[in-house]
């Protein structure tokens, strides 16, 4: 039962993207089409699952003082793997994601889960946690991508919607910020809680430093 909970918490209740406000860069950059959103989400899920399993297995081996470089190398390894796979099997998606595929390495969701969960828990819960968080991220990206594609290009998953008049600003950068802001506001409204005042830093390995920066987050 508790395994089930580890899996489902990432989907909605602790959605890393819309509730945790982590991993904003890919959320804004690749979601001009719903399909790209799903692709990016699944690629991130793969990396998150792999890195969570490996970091959890090595949690007693990695010395505390060098854990950040170790995590980054493990994550970068999985990123290289997935970019090979996508390049080979789904070249269209590979081209659409571009540099952002490599930038999964510095996605704070992955480092955050490594820091907050995988380094303290056994392998199976860590794997489920990674899978749940990854799918939650995919869900958020799919939602973003759908809204932007329907509003901006008048189509959904590549299918034309005849009655929609496309408003191209939604697929441009300004539309990305706008749609994400509205979706987060909507999530707050539905959840009925106080909106987050600051960007999610809890999982970031740099959070302690960030706090000490004057004018930074935790002021």
């Amino acid at each position: 039962m508790s395994y089930w909970k580890e899996f489902t918490k990432g989907l909605i209740k602790e959605n890393p993207n819309l509730v945790g406000l982590l991993g904003m860069c890919p959320t804004l950059a690749v979601t001009t089409q719903a399909v790209n959103g799903i692709g990016m989400g699944l690629a991130t899920t793969f990396v998150l699952l792999g890195s969570n399993i490996v970091i959890s297995l090595l949690r007693n081996v990695i010395p505390k003082s060098v854990k950040l470089p170790c995590y980054i190398v493990i994550i970068a390894g999985f990123v290289t793997l997935i970019s090979f796979l996508l390049h080979g099997y789904v070249p269209d998606l590979y081209d659409a994601l571009g540099t952002f595929l490599n930038l999964i390495t510095v996605n704070c969701i992955i480092l955050g889960r490594a820091e907050m969960f995988a380094c303290k828990n056994k392998v199976i819960p860590s794997a489920l946690d990674g899978l749940g968080m990854g799918l939650g991220f995919t869900l958020a990206l799919f939602l973003m991508g759908s809204v932007r594609e329907i509003m901006g290009s008048g189509s959904w998953m590549g299918i034309e919607i005849s009655f929609m008049h496309p408003v191209s600003v939604f697929v441009m950068s300004a539309g990305g910020f706008f749609v994400l802001g509205c979706i987060i506001a909507l999530v707050n409204k539905i959840a009925g809680k106080k909106p987050p005042q600051k960007i999610g830093c809890a999982g970031c390995p740099n959070a302690s430093v960030c706090k000490s920066v004057k004018g930074g987050n935790e002021e």
Binding site: A174, G175, F177, G181, I184, A185, N188, P195, K198
Partner: peptide, 19 residues
């Protein structure tokens, strides 16, 4: 509005700067 306070309003302001 209360639901837009914090990050949502910041993002929408960013959208206008980006525009």
């Amino acid at each position: 509005p209360a639901t837009f306070k914090g990050i949502p309003s910041t993002l929408i302001a960013a959208s206008i700067v980006s525009l």
